[in-house]
Amino acid sequence: MNHTTWTQLLPFIFILFIVVCFAVLMGTDVISLQSMTSQMPPSLLEMNTIFLSIFIEAVPFVLIGVLIAGFIQMFISEDHVEKWMPKNRVAAVFMSCVIGACFPACECGIVPIVRKLVSKGVPIYAGVGFLLTGPLINPIVIFSTYMAFGNDLKIAALRMGVGFAAALIIALLVSLFFKKNQLKGQTGTMEIHEHTQPASFFKRIWHMLGHAIDEFFDMGKYLIIGAFFAAFVQTYVAAQTLLQAGEGWVSSTLVMMGLAYLLSLCSEADAFIGASFRNLFPTSSILAFLIYGPMIDLKNTVMLVSVFQLKFVFSLIFFITLTVFACTSALVWL
């Protein structure tokens, strides 16, 4: 049997597998299933619960993200990008950060959008600006931060202000070091062949949905892997030992950034967790937690690695870490 027949058969085997699974599930006595799972260590079940909850929480945003990515694919051409994007690097970075700030997104939903934008010819540094401010600055995040810190506008305002400044600096750093689009396995000029002739509106919508579905299957697996890592860390790594390491503002800032990275919380939900550390750490460290988390975390890294070249992703993480640390530390001296 040759290679192609095999790959064509594979989905059938899978469908058969699901059917069998369901049949077994329906047929199995519920009680025997429970006795089977009750023998599992509870920590494993807890990890599974956290894993699924991250997935369920993120999946609506990912769906919105892939739909927008599909929209960009079908309705925005390289010519549009060429026309709208400022030629000046600094202006382009500033514009992308502002658009990101106006655009309510979540850190997992935004990766497919940025990938699509960059493949359409948006410069990588502008893509990064959008990637960073999108999840960090939006009405829901401002509101939840305001609430979590006891109706205190100060933290919410600092989160937005310092976060925006940090995003600008990071995007400018990227513009200094990276020129090409940094996408994985692409030579730059692909995906043009598809829609050279203008299609009807309805047809474009149809293709947009198709693209969204393919994109979901492409991105979904990385979301799942990321969510699994994050759940593992939450269940088996004690934050307490990390917290004990945090004395003084330097180490406490580093600890809080590490925590933000590992916990992989949604930017809409991390404010209450941040607030619970107020009595342990200075404000600058809390702020580092609130800014670093939405920009980069474990779950997000897995998704970025799937889209961009490894060297670029690591450099980006390095830039983000350095800049966020410097910006929040600057507050200590002010």
């Binding site: 429970q34 799972t37 599992m40 509870p42 920590s43 079940l45 807890e46 599974n48 619960t49 956290i50 699924l52 939450q234 269940t235 088996y236 790594v237 004690a238 934050a239 307490q240």
Partner: peptide
């Protein structure tokens, strides 16, 4: 797998 309510072990973490 049944969903597991978080308990003391997670609180400790």
């Amino acid at each position: 797998l049944p969903p597991q309510t978080l308990g003391a072990a997670i609180a400790a973490k």
